[in-house]
Amino acid sequence: MTDAATETTSGTATGQTAGAVPILETHGLTMRFGGVVAVDDVDFSMAEGELRCLIGPNGAGKSTFFKCLTHQYKASAGRVRFRGTDITGSHTYQIARRGIGIKTQVPSVFDGLSVHENIWVAARRHHGRREANRIVDEILERLRLEGHARRVVGQLAHGERQRVELGTVLTGEPELILLDEPTAGMTHEEVNQTTDLIREINRTTSLIVVEHDMQFIKAIAERVTVFHQGAILIEDTMANLEKNQQVRDIYLGKQHAA
């Protein structure tokens, strides 16, 4: 067992982590674009059942990190292990089948299809026709999208599109979900609903959440990883991070000044 793993298990207890293989680990994960190093030698580890937040200023490499995990980008160096299995070279669709779901920063949905069809296409990959229909209804209700079922997704508001995308991800019951700015473009009320939803999802699923909204992070976070210039700056609880001068300088300080 690596140091990183013991570190996370000794962190804020989620009750499900004792001695288990980390659900996700990266070793020396690096992504270079020409001379720019977007993700720089990242050793990341999280335990099963954890809800981890990633924060960091714009351009810190959070979204690129997600894209490397899901093989949308082929990492320049380093390994990714999911539940102990090396998935570094796997295709995007294979990683999805292994049980990693992702909600991208800009909602990635089937714009020309209806809400129902979006979620049906996602559900049908895992289930037979009848079961898929049942799951679609269940997801629509869970995400409060029943009223929009027949509407074309491209015509929906940003927050609704986010929920549709989350719905497509949830149908597969992934074991790990990556959420890239889930509250972007949402109203205050929608943010509160999303907070509840994420807590609910976390009862069965591990989550990594990238966010800028500090109130939201305080509401959901147990352990927070701070990215800075492509590398992990520090990992701690939100309360400790708020006291950390270095973090305040590079991130929170700017937020307060802004």
Binding site: T104, D111, V121, R125
Partner: peptide
């Protein structure tokens, strides 16, 4: 339906495991 979904958004189709 998956063919149409891919037409609409290849990336999302892959991220869903197709």
């Amino acid at each position: 339906r998956v063919a149409v979904a891919i037409r609409e958004n290849e990336l999302r189709a892959e991220l869903l495991g197709y």
